[in-house]
Nucleic acid binder design. Sequence first.
DNA 1: TTACTACAATGATAATTGTCATGTTTTTTT
DNA 2: AAAAAAACATGACAATTATCATTGTAGTAA
Lengths: 229, 229
Amino acid sequence: MSKCEQCIVRQLNSLKTLTKEELSHLTSCKGDQIIKKGEHIFEEGEHLKGVYCIKSGVCKLVKLSANGKDQIVKLTTKGDLLGERSTLSNEPANLSAVAVTDMEVCFIPQVEILNAVSSNANFTIDMFKSLGKSIRQSDDLLVNMSQKTMKARLAATLLMLEENFGKESDGSLSLVLTREEVAGIVGTATESVIRLLSQFGKEKIIKLDGKHIIILNHDMLRMVSDGLD
Amino acid sequence: MSKCEQCIVRQLNSLKTLTKEELSHLTSCKGDQIIKKGEHIFEEGEHLKGVYCIKSGVCKLVKLSANGKDQIVKLTTKGDLLGERSTLSNEPANLSAVAVTDMEVCFIPQVEILNAVSSNANFTIDMFKSLGKSIRQSDDLLVNMSQKTMKARLAATLLMLEENFGKESDGSLSLVLTREEVAGIVGTATESVIRLLSQFGKEKIIKLDGKHIIILNHDMLRMVSDGLD
DNA sequence: TTACTACAATGATAATTGTCATGTTTTTTT
DNA sequence: AAAAAAACATGACAATTATCATTGTAGTAA
């Protein structure tokens, strides 16, 4: 069982505000878990008993829409906390969390979070900031999804994937998603994603090598993302 | 200057958790404002100096998208607090707040909110719940906007307007919006809204009387909203 | 009243996107 | 390695939505 005091991941989230004493206590009550690609961490409607701190891997937060398709609302990775909202407001999960790659996570019981809130003002403030960031991101994404064409949304998604998850030495996006998953982010049919990616490929904006995508012309992709093409 | 202790609006938001002492202090430092229809309360990017508690009227929270169109992210009304996120996380406003009708609001300085957070655990918990609700609503809206057709989005919007703002004695939606504003909620062109509303009218799902809209067939509208028509 | 302005409505047309069908390639399983 | 399953790709067509142009209508100011 790894020690929280020595965990660098915590520097990336609100847990960085905890004192040495709080951290050593946390070490004794947290739980480590390995989640395999495709497995659920929790499901929409489930009552969470705490938060999950992601040590490695990528997770998608999805919601089933009325038409039966999965919408990917958010992608989270190393350092992110899952279930903050549910744990702090004591409400059931609104989204399902599914591993996109194999993951290592630490589970932190709700009572520990609530104790930290009541005894550590810095933690509370950081939680406000964290929830605030979620709201801002959701609102921004909402505007993009509402106003942009599918082509612009896809372009924005590709840029986001490179920005948030980086690229390999050959320049290809590190996070490899299926076309169906990309469609789940963009909110369109899988065929439309395939067609638009091919189109970007023909226009030399990206290079397609199987599932690997290399962004060739970032400026052009940004133009497309802003509807200026 | 009205007294917070006697204000029933505060029961509708986190201010309900404040003690008598905190309330009487709040009375002395809050500011009352009248905002005329069309006026801005604050604008995107502005640094807010506190939160606004809506005593009456309706406000739209909008964001200008890359294509130059205004997206209405949220409508708020009596009892809602504006600027919570910015005030708690000390960041600039992400959205502009514009009065849709004449409004009465109370301004509460940031320091009062931060003091309440540090001294009143109930207030903190309620703020977490309030921010949590915002996140949930944004995520739900995102799924709807991403996955639904314009027709379904418009149907959902009409149902939301009746649900959140009620109807007049003749059954028409109490909140009267221009077609352009509705388009700003749905995220489409004004002409598309006009056309779809006419279509709903021909199908006897709604009745159009100038700017007044009466929902005739709620079940059908819900079907349309779920894409089951 | 008249003129002006904002809002609403509709047609015509082009562009976008969804759906269904079909075939290929890649990956996984046996 | 063979078989099965999943993912990718493309064509054809229908449906949806955007855009531009024009006209009508209601409210407001001169």
